[in-house]
Amino acid sequence: MVFFVKGRDTAIDKHNVLQFAKVDFQYGKNSSLVLEGLNFTITDGEFVSIIGPSGSGKSTIFRLITGLDNPTAGNVIINGTISNKRLGTIGYMPQQDLLLPWRTVLENVTLPLEIKGKNRNVPKDQVFTLLYEFGLKGFEHVFPTKLSGGMKQRVSFLRTILTGSNILLLDEPFSALDAITRLSMQEWLLEMWGKLQKTILFITHDVDEALLLSDRILVITENPIANLKELIVPLPRPRRIRDLAKPDLVKIKEQLIEQLRMKVNHEIT
Protein backbone atom coordinates (compact mmCIF):
# COMPACT_ATOMS: atom_id res chain seq x y z
CA MET A 1 0.00 0.00 0.00
CA VAL A 2 2.87 2.37 -0.65
CA PHE A 3 0.85 4.48 -3.03
CA PHE A 4 -1.98 5.23 -0.69
CA VAL A 5 -1.61 8.24 1.57
CA LYS A 6 -4.13 10.10 3.68
CA GLY A 7 -5.78 13.29 2.39
CA ARG A 8 -3.95 16.57 2.79
CA ASP A 9 -4.75 19.18 5.44
CA THR A 10 -7.63 21.55 4.85
CA ALA A 11 -6.36 25.12 5.25
CA ILE A 12 -7.70 27.46 2.53
CA ASP A 13 -5.08 27.99 -0.13
CA LYS A 14 -5.44 30.03 -3.29
CA HIS A 15 -3.70 27.34 -5.23
CA ASN A 16 -6.53 25.03 -4.25
CA VAL A 17 -9.33 25.49 -6.74
CA LEU A 18 -11.66 23.07 -5.03
CA GLN A 19 -11.77 21.99 -1.44
CA PHE A 20 -14.11 19.95 0.76
CA ALA A 21 -13.76 20.92 4.43
CA LYS A 22 -15.36 18.51 6.92
CA VAL A 23 -18.36 17.98 4.70
CA ASP A 24 -21.32 16.02 6.05
CA PHE A 25 -24.16 15.18 3.74
CA GLN A 26 -27.42 13.28 3.95
CA TYR A 27 -30.49 13.25 1.73
CA GLY A 28 -33.26 14.26 4.12
CA LYS A 29 -33.15 14.35 7.90
CA ASN A 30 -33.90 10.71 8.60
CA SER A 31 -31.72 9.04 6.00
CA SER A 32 -28.19 7.90 6.77
CA LEU A 33 -25.08 9.97 6.11
CA VAL A 34 -23.53 9.67 2.66
CA LEU A 35 -20.51 11.84 3.52
CA GLU A 36 -19.12 12.16 7.02
CA GLY A 37 -16.53 14.86 7.65
CA LEU A 38 -15.02 14.49 4.19
CA ASN A 39 -11.88 16.46 3.39
CA PHE A 40 -10.13 16.65 0.08
CA THR A 41 -8.43 19.22 -2.07
CA ILE A 42 -7.91 19.68 -5.79
CA THR A 43 -5.19 22.07 -6.90
CA ASP A 44 -5.04 24.24 -9.98
CA GLY A 45 -4.49 22.46 -13.28
CA GLU A 46 -4.76 18.93 -11.89
CA PHE A 47 -6.48 16.00 -13.51
CA VAL A 48 -8.05 14.00 -10.68
CA SER A 49 -10.32 10.99 -10.92
CA ILE A 50 -12.77 9.81 -8.33
CA ILE A 51 -13.30 6.10 -8.60
CA GLY A 52 -15.74 3.87 -6.80
CA PRO A 53 -18.33 1.18 -7.43
CA SER A 54 -21.77 2.32 -8.52
CA GLY A 55 -23.96 3.62 -5.72
CA SER A 56 -20.94 4.59 -3.63
CA GLY A 57 -21.71 8.31 -3.54
CA LYS A 58 -19.71 9.59 -6.50
CA SER A 59 -22.64 11.49 -7.89
CA THR A 60 -23.40 12.96 -4.47
CA ILE A 61 -19.92 14.49 -4.40
CA PHE A 62 -20.55 16.00 -7.84
CA ARG A 63 -23.94 17.37 -6.86
CA LEU A 64 -22.31 19.06 -3.89
CA ILE A 65 -19.57 20.58 -6.03
CA THR A 66 -21.95 21.96 -8.66
CA GLY A 67 -24.28 23.36 -6.01
CA LEU A 68 -27.29 21.19 -6.91
CA ASP A 69 -27.11 20.12 -3.27
CA ASN A 70 -25.59 21.82 -0.26
CA PRO A 71 -23.67 20.18 2.58
CA THR A 72 -25.53 19.34 5.79
CA ALA A 73 -22.42 20.50 7.63
CA GLY A 74 -19.00 21.73 6.58
CA ASN A 75 -17.96 23.76 3.56
CA VAL A 76 -17.37 23.37 -0.13
CA ILE A 77 -14.78 25.92 -1.16
CA ILE A 78 -14.49 26.90 -4.82
CA ASN A 79 -11.56 29.08 -5.92
CA GLY A 80 -11.06 30.18 -2.34
CA THR A 81 -14.66 31.24 -1.68
CA ILE A 82 -17.19 29.56 0.56
CA SER A 83 -20.67 29.92 -0.86
CA ASN A 84 -23.90 27.98 -0.89
CA LYS A 85 -24.79 29.47 -4.26
CA ARG A 86 -22.36 27.62 -6.46
CA LEU A 87 -24.72 27.03 -9.41
CA GLY A 88 -23.18 28.55 -12.51
CA THR A 89 -19.59 28.49 -11.27
CA ILE A 90 -18.60 24.99 -12.36
CA GLY A 91 -18.49 23.37 -15.78
CA TYR A 92 -20.44 20.14 -15.49
CA MET A 93 -20.45 17.46 -18.17
CA PRO A 94 -23.11 14.82 -17.52
CA GLN A 95 -22.96 11.10 -18.18
CA GLN A 96 -25.32 11.19 -21.15
CA ASP A 97 -24.53 13.88 -23.69
CA LEU A 98 -27.85 15.64 -22.90
CA LEU A 99 -27.78 17.78 -26.02
CA LEU A 100 -30.99 19.63 -26.77
CA PRO A 101 -32.38 17.91 -29.88
CA TRP A 102 -34.06 21.05 -31.21
CA ARG A 103 -30.81 23.00 -31.23
CA THR A 104 -27.99 22.68 -33.75
CA VAL A 105 -24.44 21.87 -32.66
CA LEU A 106 -23.57 25.57 -32.63
CA GLU A 107 -26.71 26.50 -30.67
CA ASN A 108 -26.03 23.70 -28.19
CA VAL A 109 -22.45 24.70 -27.42
CA THR A 110 -23.35 28.37 -27.01
CA LEU A 111 -26.16 27.59 -24.53
CA PRO A 112 -24.03 28.44 -21.46
CA LEU A 113 -23.09 31.76 -23.04
CA GLU A 114 -26.77 32.57 -23.60
CA ILE A 115 -27.62 31.69 -20.02
CA LYS A 116 -24.85 33.80 -18.58
CA GLY A 117 -25.77 36.64 -20.92
CA LYS A 118 -22.22 36.68 -22.17
CA ASN A 119 -23.14 36.00 -25.77
CA ARG A 120 -21.57 39.23 -26.96
CA ASN A 121 -18.41 38.84 -24.93
CA VAL A 122 -17.27 35.68 -26.68
CA PRO A 123 -16.76 36.45 -30.36
CA LYS A 124 -18.48 34.11 -32.82
CA ASP A 125 -15.21 33.32 -34.63
CA GLN A 126 -13.69 32.16 -31.34
CA VAL A 127 -16.51 29.66 -30.96
CA PHE A 128 -15.97 28.54 -34.55
CA THR A 129 -12.24 28.10 -33.93
CA LEU A 130 -13.05 25.87 -30.98
CA LEU A 131 -15.55 23.89 -33.05
CA TYR A 132 -12.81 23.26 -35.64
CA GLU A 133 -10.34 22.24 -32.94
CA PHE A 134 -12.90 19.79 -31.61
CA GLY A 135 -13.23 18.18 -35.02
CA LEU A 136 -16.72 19.51 -35.54
CA LYS A 137 -16.01 21.51 -38.69
CA GLY A 138 -18.89 21.22 -41.13
CA PHE A 139 -21.28 20.11 -38.38
CA GLU A 140 -22.02 23.55 -36.90
CA HIS A 141 -25.58 23.65 -38.21
CA VAL A 142 -26.36 19.96 -37.89
CA PHE A 143 -28.86 18.66 -35.34
CA PRO A 144 -27.53 16.25 -32.67
CA THR A 145 -29.56 13.28 -33.95
CA LYS A 146 -27.20 13.12 -36.93
CA LEU A 147 -24.03 12.85 -34.83
CA SER A 148 -22.18 9.73 -33.70
CA GLY A 149 -21.78 8.96 -29.99
CA GLY A 150 -18.20 10.23 -29.88
CA MET A 151 -19.11 13.45 -31.64
CA LYS A 152 -22.01 14.09 -29.29
CA GLN A 153 -19.63 13.80 -26.34
CA ARG A 154 -17.22 16.24 -28.00
CA VAL A 155 -20.08 18.72 -28.44
CA SER A 156 -21.07 18.15 -24.81
CA PHE A 157 -17.47 18.72 -23.69
CA LEU A 158 -17.17 21.92 -25.71
CA ARG A 159 -20.41 23.13 -24.15
CA THR A 160 -18.88 22.44 -20.73
CA ILE A 161 -15.78 24.43 -21.65
CA LEU A 162 -17.85 27.37 -22.83
CA THR A 163 -19.29 27.72 -19.34
CA GLY A 164 -15.99 29.56 -18.87
CA SER A 165 -15.30 27.80 -15.58
CA ASN A 166 -11.75 26.86 -14.61
CA ILE A 167 -13.01 23.64 -13.00
CA LEU A 168 -14.57 20.96 -15.17
CA LEU A 169 -16.51 18.06 -13.68
CA LEU A 170 -16.84 15.11 -16.02
CA ASP A 171 -19.31 12.47 -14.85
CA GLU A 172 -18.45 9.15 -16.54
CA PRO A 173 -18.57 10.90 -19.91
CA PHE A 174 -17.40 7.94 -21.95
CA SER A 175 -19.31 5.14 -20.24
CA ALA A 176 -21.95 4.96 -22.99
CA LEU A 177 -19.42 4.71 -25.82
CA ASP A 178 -18.12 1.54 -27.44
CA ALA A 179 -14.62 0.40 -26.42
CA ILE A 180 -12.79 1.65 -29.52
CA THR A 181 -14.44 5.07 -29.50
CA ARG A 182 -13.78 5.33 -25.80
CA LEU A 183 -10.04 4.79 -26.27
CA SER A 184 -9.73 7.49 -28.88
CA MET A 185 -11.89 9.86 -26.81
CA GLN A 186 -9.62 9.30 -23.80
CA GLU A 187 -6.51 10.22 -25.78
CA TRP A 188 -8.35 13.15 -27.28
CA LEU A 189 -9.38 14.37 -23.82
CA LEU A 190 -5.76 14.24 -22.63
CA GLU A 191 -4.67 16.30 -25.60
CA MET A 192 -7.41 18.87 -24.97
CA TRP A 193 -6.62 19.06 -21.28
CA GLY A 194 -3.00 19.82 -22.17
CA LYS A 195 -4.12 22.72 -24.35
CA LEU A 196 -6.89 24.13 -22.18
CA GLN A 197 -5.12 24.61 -18.83
CA LYS A 198 -8.21 23.61 -16.86
CA THR A 199 -8.64 21.60 -13.70
CA ILE A 200 -10.52 18.40 -14.40
CA LEU A 201 -12.33 16.22 -11.90
CA PHE A 202 -13.37 13.00 -13.52
CA ILE A 203 -15.79 10.37 -12.20
CA THR A 204 -15.39 6.83 -13.43
CA HIS A 205 -15.71 3.23 -12.38
CA ASP A 206 -13.21 2.13 -15.01
CA VAL A 207 -9.78 1.52 -13.45
CA ASP A 208 -7.86 1.67 -16.75
CA GLU A 209 -9.50 4.95 -17.66
CA ALA A 210 -8.60 6.48 -14.30
CA LEU A 211 -4.97 5.34 -14.52
CA LEU A 212 -4.52 6.57 -18.07
CA LEU A 213 -5.98 10.02 -17.50
CA SER A 214 -5.26 11.15 -13.97
CA ASP A 215 -2.48 12.75 -11.96
CA ARG A 216 -4.17 11.47 -8.84
CA ILE A 217 -6.93 8.99 -8.18
CA LEU A 218 -9.25 9.32 -5.20
CA VAL A 219 -10.74 5.97 -4.27
CA ILE A 220 -14.04 5.57 -2.46
CA THR A 221 -13.62 2.67 -0.05
CA GLU A 222 -16.08 3.25 2.73
CA ASN A 223 -19.67 4.08 3.47
CA PRO A 224 -20.40 6.77 4.66
CA ILE A 225 -17.42 8.42 2.96
CA ALA A 226 -15.12 10.00 5.55
CA ASN A 227 -11.84 9.67 3.67
CA LEU A 228 -10.84 9.19 0.08
CA LYS A 229 -7.79 7.00 -0.40
CA GLU A 230 -5.37 8.84 -2.60
CA LEU A 231 -3.23 7.25 -5.29
CA ILE A 232 -0.70 9.16 -7.35
CA VAL A 233 -0.24 7.77 -10.84
CA PRO A 234 3.52 7.44 -11.47
CA LEU A 235 3.38 7.98 -15.22
CA PRO A 236 5.04 10.83 -17.10
CA ARG A 237 3.06 12.76 -19.70
CA PRO A 238 2.29 12.56 -22.56
CA ARG A 239 0.79 9.14 -21.99
CA ARG A 240 -0.30 6.41 -24.37
CA ILE A 241 -2.65 3.49 -23.88
CA ARG A 242 0.27 1.03 -24.01
CA ASP A 243 1.85 2.67 -20.94
CA LEU A 244 -0.76 0.83 -18.90
CA ALA A 245 0.99 -2.44 -19.73
CA LYS A 246 4.15 -1.48 -17.79
CA PRO A 247 4.79 -3.89 -14.89
CA ASP A 248 4.61 -1.32 -12.08
CA LEU A 249 1.35 0.01 -13.45
CA VAL A 250 -0.14 -3.43 -13.66
CA LYS A 251 0.73 -3.82 -9.98
CA ILE A 252 -0.99 -0.55 -9.08
CA LYS A 253 -3.99 -1.57 -11.08
CA GLU A 254 -4.24 -4.82 -9.15
CA GLN A 255 -4.05 -2.97 -5.84
CA LEU A 256 -6.70 -0.55 -6.98
CA ILE A 257 -9.04 -3.31 -8.04
CA GLU A 258 -8.41 -5.07 -4.73
CA GLN A 259 -9.42 -1.90 -2.86
CA LEU A 260 -12.62 -1.59 -4.82
CA ARG A 261 -13.41 -5.26 -4.49
CA MET A 262 -13.01 -5.11 -0.71
CA LYS A 263 -15.67 -2.45 -0.59
CA VAL A 264 -18.04 -4.37 -2.82
CA ASN A 265 -17.50 -7.62 -0.89
CA HIS A 266 -17.98 -5.78 2.35
CA GLU A 267 -21.36 -4.62 1.15
CA ILE A 268 -22.47 -8.01 -0.08
CA THR A 269 -21.68 -9.81 3.19
Binding site: L68, I90, Y92, L100, I115
Partner: peptide
Protein backbone atom coordinates in the same frame (compact mmCIF):
# COMPACT_ATOMS: atom_id res chain seq x y z
CA UNK B 1 -31.13 15.61 -15.92
CA UNK B 2 -31.50 18.38 -18.49
CA UNK B 3 -33.07 20.69 -15.95
CA UNK B 4 -30.18 20.06 -13.55
CA UNK B 5 -27.64 20.59 -16.30
CA UNK B 6 -29.14 24.00 -17.06
CA UNK B 7 -29.15 24.75 -13.33
CA UNK B 8 -25.42 24.03 -13.13
CA UNK B 9 -24.95 26.57 -15.91
CA UNK B 10 -26.64 29.08 -13.62
CA UNK B 11 -29.99 29.21 -15.43
CA UNK B 12 -32.91 30.97 -13.76
CA UNK B 13 -36.42 29.48 -13.55
CA UNK B 14 -37.49 31.68 -16.43
CA UNK B 15 -34.58 30.52 -18.59
CA UNK B 16 -35.36 26.88 -17.86
CA UNK B 17 -38.97 27.50 -18.82
CA UNK B 18 -38.12 29.26 -22.08
CA UNK B 19 -35.13 27.20 -23.19
CA UNK B 20 -36.26 23.79 -21.98
Amino acid sequence: ELEELLLTMGASKKEIFLKL
